[in-house]
Structures are given as structure tokens and as C-alpha cells.
């Protein structure tokens, strides 16, 4: 009996830790939190608007000499009307901050199991370097089902690598290294667009993330690596 219980406990703990390891997709979290916040602010907005509209209609001036009838608040009412709204707003603020922070952690704690790619931005292109040294410009091919982490810097002005479909952007700057990660799950194409004013052609600084099935990616990756190696041998020969 006791053995049984222990086993059950161990199993539960294992599932829990596997769940904790499961990758939290920030983009899905973004959509969820956005939805919650929109409901929250809509309720606040509609409540305020209705109260205002009601006052405006209810307290219209009916004859030209009429004046307002509201008395000054008593001290107790004045304090109440300060403290109560303060707590309501603060409760909402802390609720939102807590949720925002949770999602923030998903964005800022990239899973250990990932592909890590370097990005150097410049006027006006996105230049990626894969772990094996393969380079790509403006088209970032990645495998479906694997988190992608970009370590970013810039060789001239500030740019911002924005992938609307993955709900993420982060500036790339000269002299600093920043990072972002995203989680492509299905094959498909996603626009990358520059979100920081970086120069005259800022609005043309566009690229795309191409998500392909894992096997296809592996084949492409190996092939590019081979090309790179061959190319290297070629140049070495030419040099010699």
C-alpha cells in the first residue's frame, strides 16, 4: 500500500516536471493575455462612458439661470472617494503586472533545447549565421517544432527584428548584443519587418522566416554545410 502511494507520488511529480519543461509558446501567451486585457479595459471604458453619458443627459441645464446643485464633499466622503478608487485601480494594476510578468518570463527564458542563430543587421538587410557557419540573408529557414533563438547585433544604425506572426521584436544595436526567441510549430512563411527607424529605406527592410518540416531542414542544412566546406576548400586552393 505504502509502496503504491509512493509510486503514485513519483509519477505525479514526474508529470509535473515534464509539464514544467514543456515549452511555453510566448506567442500563444501573448494572444491570451491580450484578450484578457482587452476585456478588462473594455469593461472599465464602457462603465466610465456610460456614467459620463448618464450624467450629461440627466443633468442638462433646463433653464438659463439654473446652477449646479452639488455640495462640497464632507471630509469623510472626500477621503473615501480617494482611497476606494485608489485600491480598485491598484488591484487591477497588480493583477495585470503579475500576468504581464509571467508572460515576460516566457519571453525571456528561452528553452534549453533550441537552435541558436546569430543575426547582424545592417542598412538594409538581415544577415543570419547558423551554428555551422552557414550564412543567409533576409530569408531565415528554420525547422518546425524547434525553438529558435537569435543573438542580435548591428553593424550600423539601430534596427528592430519584428516578426508580427510570432508577436515578438527586439532592437539590434551596434556595440550591444540582444536576444529574442520564438517557437515555430508548423511549416509556413512569416514576414520579418524592421520596426526601428534606421535610415532612408527603413520601410523596405523586409525578410521572412521560412518554417519547413524537420527532415527537409536537416537535408538543406547538411547540403549548405557541405557547400560551405567545398567553397572553403576552393578558396584555399585558389589562394595556394
Amino acid at each position: 500500500m505504502r509502496k503504491h502511494l509512493l509510486a503514485a507520488c513519483a509519477a505525479a511529480a514526474a508529470t509535473a516536471s515534464r509539464a514544467a519543461e514543456a515549452i511555453r509558446d510566448p506567442a500563444a501567451g501573448w494572444d491570451r493575455l491580450w484578450h484578457e486585457v482587452i476585456i478588462d479595459i473594455s469593461i472599465l471604458g464602457v462603465a466610465f462612458a456610460l456614467i459620463t453619458a448618464w450624467f450629461v443627459l440627466r443633468y442638462r441645464r433646463r433653464n438659463p439661470n439654473e446652477v449646479g446643485r452639488a455640495e462640497k464633499l464632507t471630509a469623510a466622503a472626500a477621503v473615501g472617494w480617494t482611497v476606494i478608487p485608489m485600491f480598485v485601480f491598484m488591484a487591477d494594476d497588480f493583477f495585470l503586472a503579475a500576468n504581464g510578468w509571467q508572460l515576460w518570463n516566457a519571453y525571456r527564458q528561452p528553452p534549453a533545447e533550441r537552435i541558436e542563430i546569430k543575426l547582424e543587421s545592417g542598412m538594409y538587410s538581415w544577415d543570419y549565421t547558423y551554428p555551422n557557419g552557414v550564412k543567409a540573408q533576409n530569408v531565415l529557414k528554420v525547422p518546425a517544432g524547434k525553438p529558435v533563438l537569435l543573438r542580435m547585433t548591428s553593424r550600423d544604425t539601430i534596427h528592430s527584428h519584428f516578426i508580427p506572426d510570432f508577436r515578438v521584436k527586439e532592437d539590434s544595436m551596434p556595440g550591444r548584443v540582444t536576444f529574442m526567441w520564438f517557437y515555430p510549430q508548423k511549416p509556413g512563411e512569416h514576414i520579418v519587418t524592421c520596426a526601428e527607424y534606421c535610415g532612408i529605406m527603413h520601410s523596405y527592410m523586409v525578410g521572412k522566416v521560412v518554417v519547413v518540416p524537420e527532415a527537409e531542414f536537416a537535408a538543406w542544412y547538411a547540403q549548405e554545410e557541405k557547400k560551405l566546406a567545398d567553397g572553403g576548400r576552393q578558396t584555399k586552393k585558389a589562394g595556394a
Partner: peptide, 16 residues
């Protein structure tokens, strides 16, 4: 509509 912009994680998409 400023409230979502105050939330750091939402702004990662909304900024700029």
C-alpha cells in the same frame, strides 16, 4: 489603450 503598452510583454509585439 495605454494599459497594454504598459505591460512589458505585450509591448514586445506592439512597440513601434
Amino acid at each position: 489603450t495605454g494599459i497594454p503598452l504598459a505591460i512589458t510583454s505585450l509591448t514586445l509585439h506592439l512597440s513601434d
